[in-house]
């Protein structure tokens, strides 16, 4: 079960003039893959940090399976943009640490096996004993994904997880996330500023303008999607054009430089 609802969610810093997020309403169905798309500073990461339980909304609420939620919880797994592994633990110890917080009943051996199986799912079966500092950025994010999945949360929150990964690795990681979503049948909420990434991954794209949800776009390209195959697909091209136009229109007062960096 992983249905997520936002009801009139508003967030404002105590001494700020305007809210960062204003009256957001959104329902994400169980098992759905939703991308939140917007330029930096539109509040999408703030929104996610509320969903992660690291910030409290100023007003309004968010519900998981109809229950109002405050603070972090075991039903949500998180992958941050920054590399969030604990540097003093090996890759496997990181995953085990995550599992231990939700499964107090498991013995050491069972923890090891479970962690190993999740590391294999993200393609790092042989790197369990490596320290994070010895892993590349992309590999660290794989471990972070394994850790989030291993906690067996119903909802996975991913905050620009591949923002700091180079293009080629990003494609592989996107494919991995796509596959994991197919296999795990969990609700995925994925924040990104990359239009192509959003189209490639999402069932629905939530386009944000600063503080608001501007438009929700359905992506009706059949899954699984392969970037090389769909990049010339007519639906992909037109959707991409539409979203980029939307970017230019809604973020017209952004300088062109920062716009291009975002796209």
């Amino acid at each position: 079960m992983g249905k997520l609802e936002l009801k009139n969610l508003t967030f404002q810093y105590p001494d700020a003039a305007a809210p960062v997020l204003e009256n957001l309403n959104l329902t994400v169905e169980e098992g759905e893959f939703v991308c939140i798309l917007g330029a930096s500073g539109c509040g999408k990461s703030t929104l996610l940090s509320i969903l992660e339980g690291l910030r409290e909304p100023t007003s309004g609420s968010f519900l998981i399976n109809g229950q109002e939620v405050i603070g972090p919880g075991p039903e949500r797994g998180v992958v941050f943009q920054h590399y969030s592994l604990f540097p003093w633990m090996t890759a496997k110890q990181n995953v085990i640490f995550g599992i231990k917080q939700v499964r107090k009943d498991l013995k050491k051996k069972q923890l090891e096996e479970l962690a190993q199986s999740y590391l294999e799912k993200v393609g790092l079966g042989a790197d369990g004993n490596t320290m994070p500092a010895q892993l590349s950025g992309g590999m660290q994010q794989r471990v972070a994904i394994a850790r989030a999945l291993a906690m067996d949360a119903d909802i996975l929150l991913l905050d620009e997880p591949f923002g700091a990964v180079d293009t080629r690795n990003r494609r592989t990681l996107q494919k991995l996330v796509c596959d994991l979503h197919e296999i795990e049948k969990k609700t995925f909420l994925f924040v990104t500023h990359d239009v192509e990434e959003a189209i490639l991954l999402a069932d629905r794209i939530v386009f944000m303008t600063p503080g608001h949800i501007h438009q929700i776009v359905d992506v009706d390209i059949p899954k699984p999607r392969d970037y090389e195959q769909i990049r010339n697909d007519e639906r992909f091209v037109s959707l991409r054009k539409m979203l980029i136009d939307l970017f230019y229109e809604k973020y017209a007062d952004y300088t062109l430089d920062s716009m291009e960096a975002k796209l």
């Binding site: 992660e52 972090p72 075991p74 941050f80 920054h82 969030s84 604990f86 640490f97 917080q101 850790r147």
Partner: peptide, 21 residues
Amino acid sequence: KKIIDSARVLNVGTFTMLKDI
């Protein structure tokens, strides 16, 4: 703060936070 945040989203209690982080 990023390390603390990533521990918090793993639902760690105060004791675990002090002992393991």
